[in-house]
């Protein structure tokens, strides 16, 4: 396992077939343009920017890769534990309140392991252990009923079009303040609202590619399985178990993920599409780990090859360079 190549853009271009027939190669210059602009508001000349970029890459490389097996253990072990909660609660072996808390943690944390797989950080395409990467992704987001294929496609779209109101699939999470952001995480999941997974479905339909079609199919199957399990358990006398092991933890997990992974590091989004301005450094009231390392999410957007748990250390090392780039580093 590990990384075979160094990249500072979203990994997995092969999965991204953008909407409106726009190919990845067409999008690439847009990304490059914001990376090293010839002129910019930061007041730095071209040579200084190039020099800073070289320094930035040299530092970032030190934090790419590393041991990724804990993500694999967490993903597979967590999924096994989550599945076991169903019989364990139905047989009264594990008390429901404890199972509920565990399920909430697993539903929320599953996105983190899946996220590493989305960027192929566990094993690159073509490597011998690629299947490990894929299966980490596949099982991690089942508790939140969010298929890996959809998660990966939409997340890469988010990277390529970060904060673009028309193209960033996560733009619907934008809200004027934290309270409204929490409300929106729930509101966007309402059946008639074009947000969250409903927006993702619309975007996948617009993409119209075989990958998008497969993703839509997998989403439909997973949602139907979710409903079938809930209904079967409920009408068999285990409605409370179904609610506290899957239904409610899914909602709590989705809201938590939406708030900390989407709203908090990207707010405010309007007009902030540049490489060094589309993600903010912030201080979380819950701390770095409980905010799922999102305080230093800017490092992830700059270098998705840096694993989540190393973004803080990478940020500290990159801080002087980011400061010169105009990033607000006063919060952390």
């Amino acid at each position: 396992m590990g990384l075979r190549q160094v990249a500072d853009g979203p990994i997995g271009d092969e999965y991204l077939l953008a909407r409106d027939g726009v190919g990845v190669e067409t999008l690439a210059p847009e990304t490059d343009r914001s990376a090293i602009p010839l002129t910019g508001p930061d007041g730095l000349d071209r040579h200084t920017r190039r020099d800073l970029r070289k320094q930035e890459l040299a530092v970032a490389r030190e934090y790419m890769g590393g041991a990724m097996w804990p993500y694999v253990v967490a993903a597979w072990g967590g999924f096994a534990l989550w599945v076991s909660l169903f019989p364990l609660t139905m047989l009264d072996i594990v008390p429901l309140p404890i199972a509920f808390v565990i399920s909430c943690v697993l539903a929320t944390g599953g996105y983190v392991t899946s996220h590493e797989a989305m960027h192929s950080n566990i094993a690159q395409k073509g490597s011998k252990r690629r299947w490990v990467n894929e299966w980490v992704g596949q099982v991690s987001t089942i508790p939140i009923v969010f298929p890996f294929s959809m998660a990966r496609l939409m997340h890469l779209e988010h990277h390529y079009h970060c904060n673009d109101p028309e193209k960033d699939p996560d733009y619907t999470d934008e809200a004027p303040n934290a309270l409204m952001a929490w409300y929106k995480t729930w509101y966007n999941r309402q059946p008639g609202v074009d947000g969250s997974i409903h927006a993702y479905k619309r975007i996948l339909n617009e993409m119209g590619t075989p990958e998008a079609a497969r993703s839509l199919k997998e989403t439909m199957v997973l949602q139907l399985v979710f409903m079938a399990v809930l209904f079967t358990m409920a009408w068999s006398g285990y409605a409370i178990e179904a609610a506290l092991v899957w239904w409610l933890p899914r909602h709590i997990g989705l809201s938590y993920i939406r708030f900390y992974l989407s709203w908090a590091p990207h707010h405010p989004r309007a007009g902030r599409t540049g490489r060094y301005e589309n993600t903010y450094v912030f201080k979380s009231r819950l701390g770095h780990v409980l905010s799922m390392c999102m305080e230093t999410h800017i490092v992830h957007h700059l270098y998705p090859n840096i694993p989540n748990h190393r973004t803080r250390a990478a940020y500290m090392a990159l801080k002087p360079i980011l400061d010169q780039r105009g990033v607000d580093i006063t919060k952390l």
């Binding site: 409903m227 809930l230 209904f231 006398g237 409605a239 409370i240 179904a242 609610a243």
Partner: peptide
Amino acid sequence: WMPFIFGIGFIAPLVAQS
């Protein structure tokens, strides 16, 4: 129609069992 099905398939027994 999934919300209606959900109401019958899940909310109803959840209310009863609660």
